[in-house]
Write a protein that binds this DNA or RNA. Structure first.
Lengths: 201, 201
DNA sequence: AGTGAAGTGTTGACTAACGAACATCTGAAT
DNA sequence: ATTCAGATGTTCGTTAGTCAACACTTCACT
């Protein structure tokens, strides 16, 4: 028995409405009545799924982080024995994820609401990078935690700059920028060695 | 008891899906399964409201014509003793209507599917114009049917050109164009006399 | 001719979402 | 301090939409 699609439709409508309202006013001042009005749903439907606005926001954040993880791992589904050199910019999906939730990222990053979100994104990125590193033979004198954190925050910096600049580039252009940075910033002779540590997006 | 909003949501999803599919393929080749798949609805939901695709299309057309009528009459709600000279381009809503259903208008006008639709639009426009004329004192030697048809098709010509040109103007610019044509094409001394016959949009 | 994949039309049991109504609670205006 | 409009949290009966399953048709391909 497949899951009833009405549930997802209602939940998505509520989350979409919440993002929309967060664009306009402070989260704390958003009422449940406002949310269901914008979502075009009965108020009882809200209470069937969430006790408070905070719980709705929490689930939205979980959705976004899960989509971030899926997007990051997207290239891995098709390839094996990953190599940055053979990676095409179109296979990098993490910037598509950011664009998908661009309104939310703009709210969070440009303002100071929900400061913990940025840290959670970085933490997730770091774990994703670290997981990749685990499958690669160790590099001399480089601590894995340090290296993964280095790469995770570098990627996050790219995202921050993109968001704060008002999305002046397409996701594809961002992917190209990332590839260029990875491939040409690294000293030529060590590209192959480091390549496997940079399985970004 | 207000009407159950689930009905409108489902019907709108089906109509939106139909427009989307008509953009890509011939109407006759569109299956019900395709429609409900794109609308993200159960097939039974379709049959609960419509026996065939044709009936869905018919109701969509009725929706569009009703919205056309509402949009045309929008300025009348706020004003009495209508005068074109005092009419602002922002009060003209008929081009907003066309933009709202722009995808549908493009399909119908650029191609030859559903040729009857254009005639129905013109007929509706003519009746709207004629209804306005009925409230105005008769002009010497001008047949009312001819005058209303003249104005209705003139307006339709504006729309056709706009659609075929790929919507190169905003609805507001179109409204300004219409006002300019009405006000400056007419001989100066007869503006007042004809003004009331041009309650367009 | 015959096979099979895909669309059609319908049914039945189940449930999420519906409107309406209720008794609170809140907070800004008086 | 009082009022009162608006938000909250909950309940109840109803219904639109859900999935799954069915028999049937269509038609392209073998």
């Amino acid at each position: 028995m497949k899951k009833d699609r009405r549930i997802d439709k209602s939940k998505n409508a509520l989350k979409e409405a919440l993002i929309c309202l967060m664009n306009e006013k402070e989260f704390k001042s958003i009422t449940i009545t406002e949310i269901v009005h914008l979502a075009n749903l009965n108020r009882g439907t809200f209470y069937k799924h969430y006790p408070t606005q905070e719980e709705l926001l929490n689930e939205l954040i979980e959705d976004i982080l899960n989509d971030l993880i899926d997007s990051y791992r997207e290239p891995y589904k098709t390839m094996k024995n990953f190599e940055v050199g053979k990676m095409s910019s179109s296979s990098i999906k993490i910037f598509d994820h950011v664009e998908r939730y661009s309104r939310f990222y703009t709210i969070i990053i440009n303002s100071n609401v929900l400061p913990g979100f940025q840290n959670r994104v970085c933490q997730v990125l770091k774990e994703l990078v670290q997981h990749d590193l685990a499958a690669v033979k160790p590099e001399a004198n480089i601590d894995r935690s340090l290296l993964s954190s280095y790469n995770a925050y570098a990627l996050f910096g790219l995202i921050i700059e993109w968001v704060n600049g008002g999305y002046k580039f397409t996701p594809h252009q961002m992917a190209e920028q990332l590839l260029n940075i990875i491939l040409y910033q690294t000293p030529r002779e060590s590209i192959e060695a480091v390549a496997d540590t940079n399985k970004l997006s």
